[in-house]
Design a protein around this nucleic acid. Structure first.
Length: 466
RNA sequence: GGCCUCGUGGCGGAGUGGCUACGCAGAGGACUGCAAAUCCUUGUACUCCGGUUCGAAUCCGGACGAGGCCUCCA
């Protein structure tokens, strides 16, 4: 099988043909959430992007031959701080946050990774890596801390393309006294008795920020693997440091062959930040009226995300969500997917577009084309493949019942009664009565559509409710 | 200051050294008692200045502009 998939590799800054180490066991690691707070919409981007890649790899190599690992970081100083602030235990906080995270990701139509390892369950691997680094002269213990000795690794900076000189020039002035070099970073640090910690050769303590990914990828994917993904902000220092830890611990030239990074997200043209008040969580979008004055189905969020190529910056706007929803509604209006048999093959146009470094924008234009030419079973297959057809979440039922309005069966029956009365009036050419009924329903937000076959259907008004 | 990305029509957003992306909005038409929905048709583009080329929006250089990282934020 010759590979057709091309992906942009941050290591080389070029689009490369993807060649797995072992086609029988294709391995991908993506940096997952630190579970101290609800995931925001920026976090959703890598979740969706790498879910599409996972689906494509499974399509290309077979479901049994792809292993996708996305970690859960459940030890972190932000977690400690938040738990203390809320007066709950760390375990309570991380469990609660993870539960919401899992529900969010499911609503976004993402497949579950093969493994979702937790940092706290890999302390032994972290300690093992740190011991190896000390033994090989790449790390040193000082004052209860263990630090990675950056100058001991000549190739350091390869991913982010920074030279040690550049970094020194921009380094902060205050360097912790236990550091040998100002670029050295923490592998292990001491914990006070009230802080979470584990016994280690260097005393009671906890891991530094980067070591957990080296440990978890090692355990679940091996010393080297194929793809490592995450947000572009992780290139430095997180991924650079992961590479340093793993390559030096295992005496390897590479940790992962392909490094993929998704671009950043802005909200209505501005950087998302809590101080600007435009901080949007996935949970808010799905379940509250905080963004655009209404709730949004997961498929709408997913399609809005996939409209833009994953490496481009994306502006998260109400208008974009409305357009995405209009597209989905058009497809669903055109066909009742519940009764359409899905074609066995994912359309080649869709797959070929994804082979070009996940050109999801092009796949969407092909979906429009399938819709326009009436290839409904292929359309269904394409939507399913892209994770845009989760009947539980976005079906004809949810289209007709706007998430904002709870339409009871009782009201539904009443609307049907009105429609019958209006059809009767129309049969008598009583246009005044007919229009009166239509206007009254419209005032309640119910829009009527007289179809070409003489039937009348209705839906909740689609216009933006702001 | 250092490093990195990007600059396409009213808006969003792909792609390509020479031929319509696509979507939303707009315009015209069909259908309809009138609407809505649907269908058909349709216009507008490649930040600026140089260079390479038969030909560049697409390659190279420069300018201007936007964003990101270098401060545990995807």
């Amino acid at each position: 099988m010759s590979s057709k998939l091309k992906i942009y590799n941050t290591l080389t800054r070029t689009k490369e043909l993807f060649e797995p180490i072992d086609p029988g066991n294709v391995r991908m690691y993506v940096c997952g959430p630190t579970v101290y707070d609800f995931a925001h919409i920026g976090n959703a981007r890598p979740l969706i992007v790498f879910d599409v890649l996972y689906r494509l790899l499974r399509h290309l190599y077979g479901e049994a031959h792809v292993k996708y690992v996305r970690n859960i970081t459940d030890v972190d100083d932000k977690i400690n701080a938040r738990a203390a602030e809320r007066g709950i235990s760390i375990r309570e906080l991380t469990e609660e946050t993870n539960k919401v995270f899992q529900a969010d990701v499911r609503a976004l139509g993402c497949l579950e990774p093969d493994v979702q390892p937790r940092a706290t369950e890999h302390i032994a691997q972290m300690i093992a890596i740190i011991e190896r680094l000390i033994a090989s002269g790449h790390a040193y213990a000082a004052d209860g801390h263990v630090l990675f000795d950056v100058p001991s690794m000549p190739a350091y900076g390869k991913l982010s393309r920074r030279s040690l000189e550049d970094m020194r020039a921009g380094a902060r002035v205050d360097v912790a006294p236990y550091k040998h070099g100002d670029m050295d970073f923490v592998l292990w640090k001491p914990s006070a008795s009230h802080e979470p910690g584990w016994e280690s050769p260097w005393g009671f303590g906890r891991p530094g920020w980067h070591i957990e990914c080296s440990a978890m990828s090692w355990k679940h994917l091996g010393e080297t693997f194929d793809i490592h993904g995450g947000g572009i902000d992780l290139v430095f220092p997180h991924h650079e440091n992961e590479i340093a830890q793993s390559c030096c611990a295992f005496d390897r030239d590479v940790m992962a062959n392909y490094w993929m990074h998704n671009g950043f997200l802005q909200v209505e043209g501005e950087k998302m930040s809590k101080s600007l008040g435009n901080f949007v969580t996935i949970h808010d979008l799905l379940h509250t009226n905080k963004f655009g004055g209404r709730k949004w189905p997961g498929e709408v969020l997913r399609l809005a995300m996939l409209r833009t190529h994953y490496r481009q910056p994306i502006d998260w706007t109400v208008k974009a969500l409305e357009e995405a929803e209009a597209n989905l509604l058009a497809w669903h209006d055109h066909a009742d997917f519940d009764s359409i048999t899905e074609s066995n093959e994912v359309p080649a146009t869709i797959v070929n577009a994804l082979y070009e470094d996940l050109n999801t924008a092009e796949t969407i234009s092909w979906i429009h084309s399938l819709n326009k030419t009436g290839q409904m079973s292929a359309l269904k297959s394409a939507l399913r493949f892209l994770g845009l057809l989760n009947s539980e979440v976005f079906s004809r039922a949810t289209i007709q019942f706007d998430p904002l309005h709870d339409v009871t069966q009782d009201n539904r029956n009443k609307i049907d009664g009105w429609i019958e009365a209006r059809l009767a009036a129309r049969a008598e050419k009583n246009w005044a009565e007919s229009d009166r009924i239509r206007d009254e329903l419209a005032a309640m937000g119910v829009v009527l559509k007289d179809n070409k076959d003489g039937t009348t259907t209705w839906e909740i008004r689609r216009e933006n409710t702001r």
